[in-house]
Every structure is written in C-alpha cells, then in structure tokens.
C-alpha cells in the first residue's frame, strides 16, 4: 500500500526528539570548545616554564583532554547526522526554514571565529572555559571582537527575529527571553545578598551572563521542539 503524505510525517518522532539532538549538538560544541581551551592553556603553561618537562601525569592529562575533545566532536557529528536524517524524513524544507538555516550557519561561523580569536589571543593558561573568557586581550583584538558582537551579531539577530523566524519560533524565543530575564533579575540580587552576608564568593558577572544565556537557549529550544 502506498504511504500518503500525511502518513509520512506521523507520528512525528523527528520533532519530538529534535530537542535532544539539538541539545547534544550544543553540549558537544561547548565541550569541544572547553576542551580545546584546556589543552591550549595547558600547553601554553608548559611552554612558559623554562625547564618544564612533561611528566607521565601531564601526558595523561593531555591525552584525557584530547580524548574528551574527540568524544565531543564525535557526539556533534552523530547529532548532525541524526538531525539531517530527521530533517529528510519530515519532508522538504520551507523557504523560511532555509533562511533560518543560513542565518544559523552564519551565526555559528561568527561564534566559531570569535572563540578561535579568544583562544589564540589568550595570554594566561586557561584552566576552564570561564578562565578563557576572563583572560586579557590586546585593545585592537578587543575592539574588533566588540564590533563583531556589537554590530554584526546584533544586526544578524534583529534580521533573524524580524524577517526569518515564524510566530511559533518567536513565541518560543520570547518565552526563553522572559525566563532568562527573571533568572537574572532574581538570581543576581540573591547572589549579591548572600555575598553581602559573607556566605558565598563575590558575584561573577561572566557566570551570571552565561547562566542567563544558557537558560534562554534551553527554554527557547524546549518550547520550539517539545
């Protein structure tokens, strides 16, 4: 019996599982970036030590870091393959989805370029992705990156929000923004008050920013693909 077009896209396993695939891809990308930062920082520290030799423990650390990065890259590759298969099963993309993909690809390239510049221009050894983000930059690199984020990423975001996405994705994105805003509005003063009471370390702006961004992204993707 021939499958109808309606049978083909039921029972919709693609959409239900998309969130997991996207989450895996994001986690793998973040993990790979963090792993590369760790390896770069470790090797930079080794190069700065005049009589430094790699002990078996150091080699084990490097090997574990390299394995972790490889594992993340493998996870990302599997997630991309799975996303592609689900995409093909769901039928042809609409022109709006095509534009969305192109904007996402440009955003990913920009994010990758910015991350690469941060890794390459980082002076201090990076023990973690957060340390990598906190490290100093030369004024020229800082200006270029600030322009990239402030102008190019902003313009791309506005174009994406106003011209590319449909109302379902806009609603999901708005939900993410609302919950992230409240996470910030409530989380930051709670941390600050606990710090004033001497109970926790001083508020960390980068950690607050990253938490807000992660909450927004996770909520957005959940609302879009649930």
């Amino acid at each position: 019996m021939m499958d109808s077009a309606v049978d083909k896209d039921e029972p919709g396993p693609g959409f239900g599982a998309q969130a997991g695939r996207v989450a895996l891809l994001l986690l793998a990308a973040i993990g790979a970036l963090g792993g590369v930062g760790f390896l770069t920082g470790f090797l930079a520290a080794y190069n700065q030590d005049p009589d430094g030799t790699l002990s078996p423990r150091d080699i084990a650390f490097l090997a574990a870091g390299a394995l972790f990065v490889l594992g993340c890259l493998y996870g990302a590759w599997r997630a991309i393959r799975s996303l592609r298969a689900a995409d093909v099963a769901a039928g042809p993309r609409t022109p709006r989805e095509g534009r969305n993909r192109r904007v996402m690809a440009i955003a990913a390239l920009l994010g990758g370029a910015i991350s690469l510049v941060l890794v390459l221009h980082h002076d201090a050894p990076a023990s973690s992705p957060l340390a990598l983000l906190d490290g100093p930059l030369t004024p020229a690199v800082a200006i270029v990156l600030a322009l990239l984020v402030g102008v190019l990423v902003s313009a791309l975001s506005i174009y994406w929000y106003l011209r590319v996405i449909d109302e379902q994705e806009a609603a999901a994105y708005n939900k993410g923004a609302l919950i992230a805003m409240h996470t910030f509005w409530i989380g930051a003063p709670v941390w600050w008050l606990l710090w004033k009471g001497g109970l926790v370390p001083a508020p960390d702006g980068m950690l607050i920013y990253l938490t807000t961004a992660i909450v927004a992204t996770v909520t957005w993707l959940w609302a879009k693909y649930r």
Binding site: A5, A90, R93, T94
Partner: peptide, 15 residues
C-alpha cells in the same frame, strides 16, 4: 504533508 501545509502558510514544519 506537514511540509506541504507549512509551505502554503509560510511557516516552518515545526510550527
């Protein structure tokens, strides 16, 4: 299909 309808409504298949 959902893709056919999405195309006619100018929204995504997810929508």
């Amino acid at each position: 299909s959902q893709a056919d309808l999405a195309l006619r409504l100018d929204v995504s298949r997810q929508a």
